[in-house]
């Protein structure tokens, strides 16, 4: 019969997502800009989180609302496929936001600045212990040169042996692509295809 449920003959657009995590100022936005077809979009997100301690004076739900800024980029990979890159808010106390951004992600990249390793430790810890999303760690070469041996970085940040660790220049499209591909290949090698829809926690 001549009836179709779809009004358009254009292919259905599908989307995929990669999360870029790491501490404040490690180069997440730079990394997103290096490959995004749009300037990274900064958006306000808000969430309600359960208060750590219930304040009897609030008398009610024990919830507080917080706003965080996050940014994202977009890459049209094909007529029917678009990839989004989401930079997570830097502060680890926004783990609920990280859960939300990571849900449904194909991979994550934790970006590290060797001058401030501790800034990215919470992100490594999060993906090691609290999320099912496969991840790779990328050491951002701010001056184009590697000042730390990757093995030392792995040890300092307690990154599991199976997690890909590579150097990356967040300003270079080629380098960022190589990093994203490494993370996606890691997903292919380690993730059971049916598990990706599961909640991060």
């Amino acid at each position: 019969m001549g009836f179709t449920s779809s009004p358009a003959s254009a292919p259905r657009l599908a989307s995929a997502k990669i999360v870029v995590a790491g501490g404040f100022g490690v180069g997440k936005t730079t990394m997103v800009s290096a490959v995004s077809e749009i300037p990274p979009v900064n958006t306000e997100a808000w969430m309600t989180q359960a208060a750590r301690t219930v304040d009897p004076l609030t008398g009610g739900s024990g919830k507080v609302t917080t706003t965080v800024a996050m940014d994202f980029g977009r890459i049209t990979l094909a007529e029917d496929l678009v990839l989004y890159l989401f930079g997570t808010p830097g502060q680890p106390r926004f783990w609920q936001m990280w859960d939300d951004l990571s849900r449904g992600a194909s991979a994550a990249v934790v970006l590290v600045d060797t001058r401030r390793l501790d800034a990215s430790f919470p992100a490594v810890d999060y993906f090691e212990n609290d999320s099912d999303v496969p991840f790779a760690v990328a050491v951002n070469l701010f001056d184009g040169e590697q000042t730390h041996r990757l093995d030392d970085v792995r040890e300092a940040l307690r990154i599991s042996p199976g997690v890909p660790l590579l150097a990356c220049d967040a300003r270079s499209r080629e380098s960022v692509v190589r990093t994203l591909v490494a993370a996606l290949r890691h997903t292919m090698d380690t993730a059971a295809p049916e598990r990706g829809g599961a909640a991060a926690r």
Binding site: A16, V35, L81, L184
Partner: peptide, 14 residues
């Protein structure tokens, strides 16, 4: 999101 067909296409596109 871990479907190998999807991952291959994203890698090719990148």
């Amino acid at each position: 999101p871990y479907d190998p067909r999807l991952l291959e296409r994203v890698i090719d596109g990148l």
